[in-house]
Amino acid sequence: MDQPTKEQVFNDLVKIIRDLAEDWEFSGEITPDTTMLGDLSFESIDAVALASAIEELYGQSFPFAEYFSQLEERKIEDLRVQDVVDFIHGHLQPAETKG
């Protein structure tokens, strides 16, 4: 299977976010510039759920803890959907190397 494009990753991520956010009734539009905490009302604990859902979808691990820890040195409030897409896409492994 070909490596997902950034656009495909974005669509996957939007689907996951919509599913997760159902519990706090978010129904607005999600764009690449939507901020995770400010616009989507994500809380720090949701990062675990988000990471788990993404890992389940792609069948591989991602270094989310390290990623989020680096973000805290900047302002995590500014984290955009596109930032997460870039991170996921940058760490996708070819299918044959997934463990």
């Binding site: 788990s52 691990s61 270094p63 390290e66």
Partner: peptide, 15 residues
Amino acid sequence: PEGPGSLFQRMISSR
């Protein structure tokens, strides 16, 4: 550990 060489820790899961 988040990966084989990582110090960063993530919550355990059923996986």
